[in-house]
């Protein structure tokens, strides 16, 4: 074929468009799990938490979390009488090995397990300059570690302190809500290991999930509601001193 200049000008963009569609390929099919049918969250029942640290250890074992970093951790609050504004909060090694016993009967004590809130309108995903962190169609905030630059904007943006830069990978790391488990029909490692049922994975889109009955009859709260992050980790009987 005799390629004239005119023909080349027509052919080149057409070839570019064709190449683009070849590169795009077909989207991967996930046969047993439909992302659009779930909207994941978690329920934390504070009066049930005994501060054993099982969740922290389970998370580290399941997700190879490096020592000294935490995707979930447990805080022990001690609120002295009326002084809600100044609670004494401790979390030795994230509560991984539990907490030392105390016989101090003043004020009140309670444990607050924390993890990523998998916010529906998360500040962390909004600040990512490269699209390496995002909320999935089923409501889990994830980090694409192959795409992350390690700039740590998201680490600063998270109001709950749930992210860190992985010490060897040098990219952002955080709770995945055990996405590799929940998409296989398992619960998260922390929920599996919790001996008292203080943590429960919940699917808000599943009308048969026990969370709906629980939410109807209990006073639940999310952390820092004033931040309007759309947090999806619901705390039962959360004390006003918790921040």
């Amino acid at each position: 074929m005799n390629i004239t200049r005119r023909r080349l000008l027509v052919l080149l963009p057409a070839a570019a468009v064709a190449w683009e569609s070849i590169l795009a390929g077909t989207p991967e099919a996930s046969p047993n799990y439909a992302m659009t049918e779930h909207w994941w969250s978690m329920l934390i029942d504070i009066p049930k938490c005994i501060g054993c640290g099982n969740c922290v250890r389970a998370c580290q074992a399941e997700n190879d979390v490096p020592d000294g970093f935490f995707r979930t951790w447990v805080e022990r609050y001690h609120v002295d009488d009326w002084n809600l504004a100044n609670p004494h909060v401790i979390s030795p090694d994230g509560g991984k090995e539990g907490f030392s016993s105390t016989q101090d009967d003043s004020g009140k004590y309670f444990f607050v397990p924390k993890l990523c809130n998998h916010c529906a309108d998360s500040p962390c995903t909004q600040v990512c300059p490269v699209g390496a962190t995002f909320i999935t169609p089923d409501g889990v905030v994830l980090v694409d570690q192959k795409y992350c630059l390690g700039c740590a904007y998201c680490v600063q943006a998270c109001p709950y302190g749930c992210r860190y830069i992985h010490p060897t990978k040098k990219v952002a790391d955080k709770c995945t809500l055990c996405y590799h488990r929940i998409t296989k029909g398992l619960t998260t490692a922390c929920c599996e290991a919790c001996p008292t049922g203080a943590r429960q994975l919940a699917d808000l889109k599943n009308p048969n999930d026990p969370i709906h009955a629980f939410l109807k009859t209990h006073s639940v709260q999310v952390l820092k509601p004033q931040m309007a992050t759309g947090a999806k980790v619901f705390y039962n009987a959360l004390d006003g001193s918790v921040r």
Binding site: S30, Y33, M35, A58, A61, T176, Y179, K184, L186
Partner: peptide, 11 residues
């Protein structure tokens, strides 16, 4: 998403 879902399960 699929890459993260493919992580190995320990529990």
């Amino acid at each position: 998403i699929a890459e993260i879902a493919a992580h190995p399960v320990h529990f």
